[in-house]
Design a protein around this nucleic acid. Structure first.
Lengths: 249, 249
DNA sequence: CTGAAAGCGCTTACAG
DNA sequence: CTGAAAGCGCTTACAG
């Protein structure tokens, strides 16, 4: 393996100077720089990240933890993270937060000992333990869950999203609307979603949709039997249903 | 950070001995082992992978290169690789072989300088350049493309698969069968797929399927106009079509 | 502008 | 069974 010493010898300078040039620091003449660069080229020298990381206490590794690697949302995020990381010279290390949260501790420990430059958490909550396992100096970013603990996060307003999605269906004239929030015990965003849904009331319906609603009502009557055979709506939807019925009377 | 020296001091032994115990080597008394383990526990010592890797010239990192992170097949493979890796104490480093093959060189270089223990290549061909960039000591495994260069690979027989898939359709009585192989210039498996398809001839049809074929033929006649309006079959399929027609005469 | 030196945290012959 | 020492390849005050 070609080391910084080899380059130094080849260029007739000290290893310290090679390091400075390679890292783009200050403190060398143009001529020196050129000699070093030539030597780097002809020996095809490559910095040893392990050695550098050991010395500087930091590598260009970033940790990327997802619930599942093959998760649909996570895949998309991972793809994006990977693209940007590679563009900026970072390497991405993969991990799963998975079902067993014991796993995540292991990954975090690994990332710390590889001196990761930062960690991106997809669909996972940053707990005090997370912080502690990673040490105080590793930045954490959470994606898809907005963090309350002070870390930056990239996420949507889940409550508002539930509200908007429901409104969309209401505008289309639908009245029997189910909501699948996920189990609040394990799906963190279930709560805000559950809050967003019932914020609706009749007065919020868009007035311009009257016509369309009439159409839909007719169509529904025609499909009467099919509709009646449908699944019973979720308990939380009772109010909306009653609301819809009253309008029809 | 807790180092091996701290543990050594705490346990009243030398760093060398701590290293031996931690790595499960031979050469220490039971009593020593216990003292070291206690010290490791109470200080919650964690091996520095960077330092170890620098010394041993090998880390527990394995590289995982896929065409796209969000690719459907790759996602599944990645998930599996990640599970097994984590079980065995390896960390997975991500990379994309992507459209630009120039990228892959960068990843391979990175993996070499992180002293990766091995590399898994999904849907990519192992070229001499691959080998060269990674150095002679890093094992490479290719997935989804069977390697001819001597590396182990996990893949299906694409030619046979194309043959089998075609046979399946033939058995169902279909005669107008298109094949989407992908562009042979960029999709490596297009060639074997293309070979597998036309290996069929009439005599290979499963005799037990006669009855079903008759049924299908009737049905097809009924839908005559629709069928006629369908897309023209691929040029490569002409023989199969003619074959099918003759049987009807 | 440049180099000698120390040290990051570990491992591993070597010697006892 | 155990320890002192050298060294992996780099960076960075320090001194000039």
């Amino acid at each position: 393996m070609v080391t910084i010493r080899d380059v130094a010898k080849h260029a007739g300078v000290s290893p310290a100077t090679v390091s400075r040039v390679v890292n783009g620091l200050v403190g060398y003449s143009d001529e020196t720089r050129e000699r070093v660069e030539t030597a780097v080229q002809s020996l095809s020298y490559e910095t040893d990240y392990l050695a550098r990381g050991l010395k500087t206490r930091q590598t260009s590794v970033i940790g990327l933890l997802a619930p599942m690697v093959s998760d649909a949302l996570a895949s998309q995020v991972m793809q994006g993270v990977e693209e940007e990381a590679q563009e900026r010279g970072y390497a991405v290390m993969l991990g799963r937060t998975g079902a067993k949260s014991a796993y995540i501790a292991g990954y975090l420990r690994t990332l710390r000992t590889y001196r990761a430059a930062g960690v991106i958490l997809i669909s996972a909550v940053i707990t005090p333990e997370t912080r502690q396992l990673l040490g105080p100096n590793v930045p954490i970013i959470s994606v898809a869950i907005s963090d309350k603990s002070g870390s930056p996060s990239v996420a949507i307003d889940d409550e508002q999203a539930a509200y908007d999605a429901t409104r969309h269906l209401l505008r289309l004239g639908h009245r029997r609307i189910g909501q699948l929030t996920g189990d609040p015990a394990s799906i963190y965003v279930a709560q805000p979603r559950k809050r967003g849904y019932p914020r609706h009331d009749r007065s919020r319906l868009h007035p311009g949709d009257r016509h369309r609603q009439l159409l839909l009502r007719k169509r529904r009557r025609r499909r009467g039997r099919t509709a009646a055979a449908g699944a019973r709506p979720h308990r939380d939807l009772r109010d909306e249903r009653r609301d819809g019925r009253r309008r029809r009377q």
